[in-house]
């Protein structure tokens, strides 16, 4: 072939390789041993020049572009020019964007501007809400932007349940959900590995049938009073209304959880809570106007619906008497919150 011996000799290759090695060492040395007379800008320029030098040496001699057909050089150059041009412009666009956005951000949250330049980890944008009563800020903090990452990635994604187009294959049933998929580079027990092990839901063959409680009444009470917030499927609305499915068994099995559940219905609940890894800060109205039998029935209903019962080691239906007993204690919703906080939840 015509260009067989156009390439350089072994000696030349060796020389180039030597130069490449030396340049790499110089680059290393510049960074490793601080050079007093090089300021930051010049260090970067030097590094860029050196690596461009390496780049050109490899391309020209090892890839033979120096002696080869110009067409190759042309094609490769077009690629390089497009790539360099496009992504330098792109990086530039983001840098001027950030200038103007820092400016604009100062409108909203003056504090952040300094933070973003000094400590990138503190530059987490959050909603500073002007004109909001002080005591509301806390609940705002737990929402939206400021949610910790772990919370976002470990909780079930809110799904738009409003519209029903046929979804025969839900992601969770057919395959791994994301939180189940092992992160590529995570080792067991480290960040990113889901902390909570969601118990496997198995459709139990023996569905718990009515055992000494009124299933029909429970269903009626639920759909009339509870489903508006906690939804018909017991999933609640993430961030607004805690789920009952999968959550209640945890509460029920905690020490004192059984009594707590009764109290929540009788006296309501207000304040920050956590449920299945997601935090809520809302209000559960008191349902004292319901009869003891209704409260017992609806509690039994929710504890046995949505496969909840399969998550329970043992389940004894809540009795009307228990509700009647609890009714005499006359708690406030704040006390109910204390009750909840006292529970030994996993």
């Amino acid at each position: 072939m015509s260009h067989d011996h156009k390439g350089s000799s072994v000696g030349a290759y060796t020389f180039i390789a030597l130069v490449l090695g030396v340049i790499t060492y110089i680059e290393f040395a510049i960074i490793q041993y601080e050079v007093a007379w090089l300021n930051a800008a010049w260090t970067i320029i030097t590094l860029v020049v050196l690596s461009v030098g390496k780049f050109i040496l490899v391309v020209a001699f090892f890839m033979h572009l120096k002696d080869d057909e110009q067409t190759y050089t042309g094609f490769f150059s077009i690629g390089m020019v497009f790539a360099l041009g496009t992504f330098i412009v792109l990086a530039f666009l983001f840098s001027i964007r950030s200038v103007s956005s820092v400016w604009a951000r100062s409108e909203r949250t003056p504090v952040e501007v300094q933070a973003s330049s000094e400590h990138p980890e503190e530059a987490k944008p959050h909603h500073e809400l002007h004109g909001i009563p002080e005591h509301l800020q806390a609940s705002i903090e737990s929402e939206g932007y400021s949610r910790p990452l772990a919370e976002i990635f470990d909780t079930a994604r809110p799904k738009n349940q409003a519209l029903s187009i046929a979804v025969p294959v839900a992601r969770t049933t057919q395959s791994f959900t994301v939180s189940e998929a092992p992160p590529l580079f995570a080792l067991a027990g480290q960040d990113g590995v889901p902390v909570e092990e969601t118990p496997a839901i198995e459709v139990s063959a023996q569905t718990e049938t009515a055992q000494g409680f009124d299933t029909e009444l429970g269903g009626q009470v639920y759909s009339g009073n509870c489903a508006g917030c906690h939804q018909v499927n017991g999933q609640g609305i993430p961030g607004a209304f805690p789920p009952l499915a999968q959550n209640l068994p945890i509460l029920y099995q905690a020490d004192g959880g059984r009594e707590y559940l009764v109290n929540v219905l009788l006296y309501g609940l207000q304040g920050p809570i956590e449920a299945l890894g997601q935090s809520y800060n809302g209000i559960m109205p008191a349902w004292a106007q319901l009869g003891d039998d209704e409260i017992a029935a609806v509690l039994n209903h929710v504890l046995t619906s949505w496969d909840n019962v399969t998550l329970l080691d043992e389940f004894a239906p809540i009795l009307v008497e228990e509700v009647a007993t609890a009714r005499s204690t006359n708690l406030s919703s704040a006390q109910v919150l204390e009750l909840r906080n006292a529970l030994d939840l996993p």
């Binding site: 490769f76 077009i78 690629g79 360099l84 992504f87 990086a91 980890e121």
Partner: peptide, 26 residues
């Protein structure tokens, strides 16, 4: 060579993304 020219854009995009997100880790 054409593939390599194209690959320039591949790595250009990846490096570009890296640069855009440089110093933006929370």
């Amino acid at each position: 060579w054409i593939f390599l020219a194209s690959d320039c854009m591949f790595f250009g995009t990846l490096i570009g993304t890296y640069l855009v997100y440089k110093n933006r880790s929370l």
